[in-house]
Design a protein around this nucleic acid. Structure first.
Lengths: 141, 141
DNA sequence: ATCTTTGCAAACTTTTTGCACCAAT
DNA sequence: ATTGGTGCAAAAAGTTTGCAAAGAT
């Protein structure tokens, strides 16, 4: 799936929801699709501003909220303070190095065992995608 | 180990490190030891203020920082925004319900398998205590 | 006497909100 | 013509910092 197709798909979902296809949204979603990884609202804002200097950070947040409601985007708290946003097309878990901040993405399936055990013993259903797991990456041991 | 012993132990560690035993610190650590679970800086401040109305929230933060440097306290980001602090004597992982905010503590050992696999495949060492795992508790399914 | 710790006020960072205007349908 | 989206400014929430005064050693 190309970036253009991805963009169109998201725009279509927005329209279905009764949303409007504004310049700002197009720019934000384009930037999000283009930046292939995890971005903070701030970073996204910088990218968007390159082409559309008038798009306000507030609008970024509101757009990301909307996309999250639709289920297209998810956000994760990687560290102290800021959150990062990413497209939701492949679900993965984040390992974040406490030292160098590197983000390692690992398949969700690694957590299946843990999830099953926690479910069995505590009745708790893990939804792991929302928070990062911290530690030390290979390079920083 | 009684609360009083625990308090004394922590005060001793502080002293060893060249720290001073102030009224504020005594009050904060007492409150921390007394409140048997996870507290936000704010909650801790409220408890401390009951007996010592003059201890400022800033001081709470600075004291918690110091205790964290010593290794006595750890803090965890349970949700969006505030962090919770807890004594470091039994290491456990936090499961937090996204709906009712309940905190379920589970033994660290549940994560051993996951940690081993992540270590093997990605060279990443998980230090899981720092962040919460989100999901739905038994009552909120 | 020294040097850490404290209180206070103010800054800071990230995110949210109120409101009048604009623009997509 | 609607009504949802946007920009702006300002508030909120949580935490940190600078500095002079207080307090522990």
């Amino acid at each position: 799936m190309s970036d253009a197709e991805r963009l169109d798909g998201i725009l279509a979902m927005l329209r279905e929801r009764g949303g409007r296809l504004t310049t700002a949204r197009r720019a934000i979603i384009t930037a999000l699709v283009g930046s292939r990884s995890h971005v903070t609202a701030d970073e996204l804002s910088a990218t968007v501003r390159a082409a559309h200097p008038d798009v306000h950070l507030t609008t970024i947040y509101r757009c990301l909220d909307t996309l999250e409601e639709i289920g297209v985007v998810d956000h994760v708290h990687l560290g102290h303070g800021r959150a990062v946003y990413h497209l939701n097309d492949e679900i993965h878990q984040h390992l974040v190095c406490e030292r160098c901040q590197a983000v390692v993405e690992v398949p969700d399936s690694l957590f299946d065992d843990l999830a099953a055990r926690v479910k069995g013993r505590y009745g708790f259903t893990i939804r792991p995608h929302h928070f990062a797991v911290l530690g030390r990456c290979a390079a920083c041991q």
